[in-house]
Structures are given as structure tokens and as C-alpha cells.
């Protein structure tokens, strides 16, 4: 009982071209960074913009990661995701304002403790909100895309209005905790501390997420579910429960992204999540629906491009990202790292 000798696959040759194909999107980030350098000219401006772009990319990734998995697992289009970003920002920033004693003190420990407390509060509230949103709004419209768009947009509007009821209609300005203010100078470029922190934090989160997806059974179930949910269920796993877990985690991450984005902009509005959703959707689409790695690379590209173009030709910043999406979809209609669907 052995396989026919002639039947061995040319696995080395195959994986060679395949891995180059898979690596291609990874190369786009350094290529864009180099192109940025060439067109900006000044090293210090380029360095500042690159760090800003990476920081922005990390935050967009954090907001997008849950959305891409939610789509991949259950084919659910959730326009309400932006509401979690706004709510997260409001809850987190309220916590920070309440902890003024800690944020105002020139102590790194107290400052970080305050930010952590704000993040935990934001993630708990948005996670819970996500759980309710899935039950009440998303569950009745499984499998019906048009209805999903309508009801989730409805949910978004309602939550935005509720934010205005609770926190008032005006934007809220804030200042970062003492030790996260200011910049460090490196190679003649002033780089804001907060942006560096956002890059490091976003990277750590991406690595942690990848570890969970690659090394844990629940991660395996999620990855398998994105490819073939039916088969995952036939093996005995309750995919719907897994989906709810992912939805809640994704909502909490959107809340985290909201806090980080609020601290980055130093102002929050009820509509901030909705505004971010344009970039978030671009990232999810160019990454390949359901692909966390794709969303990560897509987010870095979008963040970098946004910052470079805003410097070079401010009016073209948003258009540049739509152009990026068009170009990538012409190259790979399924996105950069499409998930191999079963059917």
C-alpha cells in the first residue's frame, strides 16, 4: 500500500514559486518606504513621516483585524464596526480624564498605568457592546448581505447618537500623559514618543495575534473556519460560538484602536470611527478578506502612503489610498493574501 512512484508531487518547485508569490506583498512595504525616501528627499522629514505612517498603520490594523476575521468566518459585513472605535475612544479618554492625577504626574509608571486602565475599560465596554450587537443586530441577518449593510449602518448611527447623548455633541480635546508628550530626536528628525510607542505596541499585538492563530487550537479553528466553515462544524466544533468569540474580540480591539487613535489625534468625536472605516475597509479588502497578515501589510501600506502623500500633495491623501486599492485589486482581485476558500 504505497503511492505510485510517479505520483509524488513536485512539492519543492511548487512551494518555491508559491512562497515567492506569498512574499511579494511583504516586499511592498519596503518598496513604498524607499519610494517615499526618493520622492521626499529630506532624510529627517522622511524619517518622521515613516514613523507616523507606521504608527497610523498599526492603529488601522488593530481596528481592522477583527473585521477581516468576522467577514472571513461568517461572511458578515459589519458597517457598525466603526461605532466600537468611537465608543472605545470615549470610554478610554473618559477614564484618562478621570485619572488626571496619574496622567499629569511626571511618572512613567503612573502614566502607563493610567493608559492601561483606560485601555482595559475601553476594551471591556466595546467587547460587551460587540456581544450585544452580534446578538441583536447581526444574528438575525446571517447570510443576507444587503440586510447586513442596512442594519449595521443603522446600528452605527444609533450608537453615534447615543455617544452624543452621553458625552455631548462637541468634540473632546485631550492631552497625552506627561511622559508620552514630546519627541525624541534621531538623525535630525523629531519623532514623537507616542508614535514610537504605538509602533512597538502594534507590532507586539500583531505578533501575539499570529501566535494565537498559529499555535493554539482555537487559532487553528478560526483559520480553518475562514477557509471552510462547514468542514469545521463536521469535525464537531461549534463555529457559531467561535464566531461570537471572534466578534467580541474584534470589537474590543476596535475599542483599543479607538483609544490609541484618540491619543494620537488628541481629539475625539462621535464620528471618528465612521471616518476611519473608509481606511479600515480599504485595508480589509486589499489584504484579502479573512487574512490577518494581509490586513497587517495593507494597514502599513495605507498608513505610509497616507503620510507620504499628505506631505507631498495634501489634497491627494485619501485619493492615493483609493488608487492603491485599485492597483492592488488589478494585480490580485482577491486581495494580497487571499484565503483559499473551499468552494
Amino acid at each position: 500500500m504505497t503511492a505510485a512512484p510517479g505520483h509524488a508531487p513536485k512539492i519543492s518547485a511548487l512551494s518555491m514559486t508559491q512562497s515567492i508569490g506569498k512574499m511579494m506583498p511583504l516586499l511592498l512595504v519596503p518598496i513604498l518606504v524607499v519610494l517615499g525616501f526618493l520622492s521626499i528627499g529630506s532624510t529627517s522629514s522622511w524619517l518622521t513621516l515613516t514613523v507616523s505612517g507606521l504608527a497610523m498603520g498599526m492603529m488601522i490594523f488593530i481596528m481592522a483585524s477583527g473585521l477581516t476575521l468576522v467577514f472571513g468566518l461568517m461572511d458578515v459585513i459589519n458597517f457598525g464596526h466603526g461605532a466600537f472605535i468611537s465608543v472605545g475612544a470615549y470610554v478610554g479618554i473618559s477614564a484618562l480624564l478621570a485619572l488626571e492625577g496619574w496622567t499629569g504626574a511626571p511618572s512613567l509608571v503612573l502614566n502607563v498605568a493610567a493608559v492601561l486602565a483606560a485601555v482595559v475599560a475601553a476594551m471591556c465596554v466595546t467587547g460587551l457592546l460587540g456581544w450585544g450587537f452580534e446578538r441583536v443586530i447581526v444574528r438575525p441577518v446571517y447570510g443576507a448581505h444587503l440586510k447586513q449593510i442596512l442594519v449595521t449602518v443603522g446600528g452605527l448611527i444609533v450608537i453615534e447618537q447615543l455617544i452624543q447623548v452621553v458625552w455631548g455633541p462637541d468634540e473632546i480635546f485631550l492631552t497625552r500623559p506627561e511622559m508620552l508628550k514630546g519627541a525624541v530626536t534621531f538623525a535630525g528628525a523629531a519623532i514623537e514618543k507616542y508614535r514610537l510607542l504605538a509602533v512597538v505596541f502594534g507590532l507586539a499585538l500583531f505578533v501575539a495575534m499570529r501566535l494565537v492563530l498559529k499555535r493554539t487550537k482555537i487559532g487553528l479553528i478560526v483559520r480553518a473556519g475562514v477557509q471552510n466553515g462547514e468542514m469545521v462544524e463536521a469535525l464537531g466544533y461549534r463555529l457559531k460560538l467561535v464566531f461570537i468569540g471572534v466578534f467580541v474580540a474584534g470589537s474590543a480591539l476596535a475599542g483599543l484602536g479607538g483609544v490609541m487613535w484618540g491619543l494620537y489625534q488628541e481629539v475625539i468625536t462621535a464620528g471618528m470611527g465612521e471616518e476611519m472605516m473608509i481606511l479600515v475597509f480599504i485595508v480589509v479588502i486589499i489584504g484579502g478578506l479573512g487574512s490577518v497578515e494581509g490586513a497587517f501589510i495593507g494597514a502599513l501600506l495605507v498608513g505610509l502612503l497616507q503620510n507620504y502623500v499628505a506631505f507631498l500633495e495634501p489634497k491627494l491623501a485619501l485619493i492615493s489610498n483609493i488608487a492603491l486599492m485599485t492597483a492592488i485589486l488589478m494585480w490580485r482581485p482577491q486581495g494580497m493574501m487571499p484565503v483559499v476558500k473551499a468552494k
Binding site: 477557509q227 471552510n228 468542514m231 473551499a342 468552494k343
Partner: peptide
């Protein structure tokens, strides 16, 4: 269950 289309998780 072994489905007709095999149901392999290709990315795994």
C-alpha cells in the same frame, strides 16, 4: 464525514 470535495484546509 468525508465530503465529496474532500474539505481540506489548504492553508493549514
Amino acid at each position: 464525514f468525508v465530503p465529496e470535495d474532500m474539505g481540506i484546509f489548504s492553508d493549514l
